[in-house]
Amino acid sequence: MNSFIEKLTGMAPLTDQVIATDLLMASKTAVRNYSLAITETATPEIRQTLINHLEDAIDTHRKLSKYMMEKGYYHPQDTQKQLEVDLRTAETALSLSND
């Protein structure tokens, strides 16, 4: 595990990309989880809390996806480019697990 972290930290720019992707996915899950929870609540105070959290979650997701687009990690408008990035990421992930 420690050598794994060392490997990761040894490739700083890639680590940033991996972490940003992980955060983006977490924030996406947050938006979904909160939306579902809102439809299951009956108490107005709880509903309001969940709505506020949902607004924050959408903000976080928006900021992260904009950051990733600026950095060239995320190309929603260009499938070909996105595929190249994803394949490169997959290669790196495979090489990390192989040695």
């Binding site: 938006v31 979904r32 939306s35 439809t39 959408i58 687009m69």
Partner: peptide, 16 residues
Amino acid sequence: TTASIKDLSVAITEAT
């Protein structure tokens, strides 16, 4: 309405 909330929250995270 529940279904539309679920669908909209999914769509929001895919909007560019």
